[in-house]
């Protein structure tokens, strides 16, 4: 016997989500069947809303429901510094810190020819355009400490530095509150290389 079409379709939809297989999808589908109609409607509405109401900010590339986004519109922020990140969720992490008051630029990806991503496939052109149009004195590159993140950082610095703009990179090394004893050799090596005078 086969599932009735509506539930079979729902199972199929759940299975498209990462980390969900056939059994979990079936369980979720039957759970949905038992939910209150109002909750299910809300759920469906939010699913559609993330696709319909969210856009990429035309200035910084972050996800937003209004264009330009809240950060780009905010006139109280320091407009002379731009912090470059790989993903929108990195902006959230930085904002939680509450210590950075400049602007952002979201690349929405990282340079990785292996995955078919070259310089033209991520938001690099729009960053260069911004540097032309606005009075920016420093670009902080906050891509991840992976080989791809490093390659992206090196590439950006080659493009930006000739324009006379200061380019900086986040520090590598020990995480705060951690014991040296538990750090791996490579992290320690990076920490020693990046040591600073007290």
């Amino acid at each position: 016997m086969q599932y009735p079409t509506p539930i079979a379709k729902l199972i199929e939809s759940y299975m498209r989500l990462p980390g969900i297989g056939a059994k979990t999808a079936a369980r979720l589908a039957f759970f949905t069947l038992d939910m209150k109609e109002a909750d299910v409607t809300d759920f469906a509405k939010s699913l559609i809303s993330v696709k319909r109401d969210l856009h990429y900010c035309s200035i910084c590339g972050n996800i937003t429901d209004e264009d330009p986004c809240d950060i780009c519109k905010d006139t109280t922020r320091d407009r002379s510094t731009i912090l470059v990140v790989e993903e929108p969720k990195d902006v959230m992490s930085m904002e939680k810190m509450r210590e950075y008051h400049g602007l952002y630029h979201v690349l929405n990806g990282v340079l990785s020819p292996m995955d078919g991503t070259g310089p033209d496939d991520i938001n690099i052109a729009s960053l260069i355009q911004r540097l032309h149009d606005e009075e920016v004195t420093e670009v902080i590159i906050a891509t991840n400490a992976t080989t791809e993140g490093e390659a992206t950082a090196m590439y950006l610095s080659r493009l930006i530095k000739p324009a006379g703009i200061k380019v900086t990179r986040l520090a590598h090394g020990l995480s705060v509150g951690s014991d040296i004893e538990y750090a791996d050799e490579v992290t320690l090596l990076k920490a020693v290389e990046g040591r600073r005078e007290l």
Binding site: L111, G118, P119, T147, E150, A151, M154, Y155, R158, L159
Partner: peptide, 12 residues
């Protein structure tokens, strides 16, 4: 060829 990018990869 994006010479800058190829140079970055070579440097790494």
């Amino acid at each position: 060829t994006d010479q800058n990018f190829l140079d970055v990869l070579s440097e790494q």
